[in-house]
Computed example of a mutant assay.
Amino acid sequence: MALPDVRVLIVDDHHVVRLGLRALLEGEPGLEVVGEAADGEQALSATERLRPDVVVMDVRLPGRSGTDVCGEIVRRWPQTHVIMLTSYLDEDLVLQALMAGAEGYVLKQLEGDALLKAIQAVARGDAVLDAATMRRLVARVRRAEGDSDRAAFRDLSERELSVLRLIAEGMTNAEIARVLSLSEKTVGNHVSTILGKLGLNNRIQAATHAVRHHIERHAPGPA
Rank of each mutant, 00 (worst) to 15 (best):
Q109D: 10
Q109M: 03
A102N: 07
L107P: 14
Y105I: 01
A139G: 12
Q96K: 11
A102I: 09
A131V: 10
R135G: 13
T133L: 12
K108G: 06
Q120K: 11
V122E: 01
L110R: 02
A131Y: 05
Y105Q: 07
V106S: 06
D92H: 10
L137Y: 15
V128Y: 13
D130E: 14
A127P: 01
A97S: 11
D130S: 15
M134V: 06
D126W: 15
M99P: 04
L129S: 02
Q109H: 10
D113M: 02
K117C: 03
V141M: 04
A139P: 13
V128W: 14
G112M: 08
V138S: 04
A127Y: 14
R136T: 02
A121Q: 07
E103D: 04
L110P: 08
L115F: 07
Q120L: 07
D130V: 13
G112W: 05
D92I: 12
L110H: 02
L110G: 02
A114I: 02
R136H: 10
T133M: 12
A121R: 10
R124H: 13
M134H: 04
L93H: 04
A118C: 07
A123I: 06
Y105D: 06
V122T: 10
L110Q: 02
L93F: 09
A121N: 04
A132K: 00
G104D: 09
R142D: 12
R135M: 13
G125R: 13
V106T: 08
L95P: 03
I119E: 00
L110T: 00
K108W: 00
R135I: 13
L107G: 14
L115D: 03
I119Q: 00
V138H: 15
L129Q: 07
A114R: 01
Q120Y: 06
G104T: 12
L107N: 15
A100F: 07
L137W: 15
G112K: 08
A121D: 09
G125L: 01
L95Q: 07
D113Q: 10
L110S: 04
R135P: 15
D130T: 11
L129G: 00
M99D: 12
Q109W: 02
E111H: 11
L107S: 14
E111W: 03
V138T: 10
D113L: 05
K117S: 09
G112Q: 11
L107F: 11
V141S: 13
A118I: 03
D113H: 08
Y105P: 09
V138G: 04
A121M: 09
G112N: 11
L137E: 11
G104E: 10
A131F: 14
V138P: 13
L137V: 05
V128G: 01
R135W: 14
Q109I: 05
L116I: 12
A102M: 03
R140C: 02
L93A: 14
D126Y: 15
R140Q: 06
G101A: 01
R142C: 01
V128Q: 05
V138I: 06
L95S: 06
A121C: 05
V122W: 07
R140I: 01
T133Y: 11
L115C: 06
V122C: 00
V106D: 05
E111C: 05
R135S: 14
